[in-house]
């Protein structure tokens, strides 16, 4: 599984950083930053799905 962040859609709701800090950080203005690349560790796939399904702006997607 891979996870993608559309930074243009992110409005800084901060849900991903709270639910999946292994995958997302936030900058000084509260905008999300994706901190992983490539295929996810299988142990983090649930976190990626959780982050995606709690982003109000649909800025996070996952692909299998």
């Amino acid at each position: 599984m891979r996870v993608q962040l559309d930074v243009d859609k992110c409005q800084g709701h901060n849900r991903c950083y709270v639910l999946a800090p292994e995958l997302f950080d936030v900058d000084d203005l509260g905008q999300a930053i994706l901190i992983v690349e490539g295929d996810l560790d299988p142990g983090l796939e649930g976190k990626a799905r959780l982050a995606a399904s709690n982003c109000p702006e649909y800025a996070i997607t996952t692909t299998d």
């Binding site: 409005q11 709690n54 982003c55 109000p56 649909y58």
Partner: peptide, 11 residues
């Protein structure tokens, strides 16, 4: 677990 609520607005 799935909660894309808009309590804080959208956009």
């Amino acid at each position: 677990e799935e909660n894309r609520h808009a309590a804080f607005g959208l956009g």
